[in-house]
Amino acid sequence: MQLALFWIFSILMLLFALGVVFFRSPVNSAMCLVMSFVALAALFVTLDAYFIGVVQVLVYAGAVMVLFLFIIMLLDLRSEENRRVKISAWVGGGLVVGGFVAALSHVLQSIPKLQAIKPDLSNPAVNDVAAVGVTLFRFFNLPLQIIGVLLLVATIGVVLLSKKELK
C-alpha cells in the first residue's frame, strides 16, 4: 500500500513537472506547477513530515504560485511564438540532463545503505509540529530571527524595484 501510494504521487508530480517544461502557455505551466507542488506535499506526508507538507501547500502552492500568476497576468504574456528551435541547444541540454540522471542512478545503486526500507518510528503518533517548533526555537533561534530580517529586506527590495519613475 505504501509503495503504491508513493509511486502514484511520484508519477503525478513528475508528469506535472514535465508539463511545466513542455506547455507553451505560461498560465498552463503555472497551473501544472501548482499541481506538482500539491503532489509533492503528499509525498511529504508519506514521510511523516506533516508540518512541512502543510507549509509547502500554504507557502509554495498558495502564496508563491499565486504571485507567479499575478505577474503573468500583469505582463500580459501571450504564448511563446515559435521561434526557430535550435536543435543543438536541445541536444546539449538533453545531454546534460541525461548525464546527471545517469550519474545519479549509478550512485543510488552502488550504495547499499540507501536500499534500506523505512524504519519504524518509536512513537508513531508523533506531534511533529511541536517537534519541529522545539528544534526551531531552541537550536535555530538566531537563524530564525535573521530570516525575519531577510524577509523584511526582500519586501523593501521588491517595493523599490517595482516603483515607476515618479514624474
Binding site: M13, L18, L43, G94, L104, S105
Partner: peptide, 24 residues
C-alpha cells in the same frame, strides 16, 4: 515499501526536470 533510494531517485528526476526547464 519505498526505500531511501526510491525517494532520492524521484528527487533527482524532479531536479533534472527543473534543470531542463532552465536550459531549454
Amino acid at each position: 515499501m519505498p526505500t531511501l533510494a526510491n525517494y532520492l531517485l524521484v528527487s533527482g528526476l524532479l531536479f533534472s526536470i527543473g534543470l531542463s526547464a532552465v536550459l531549454l
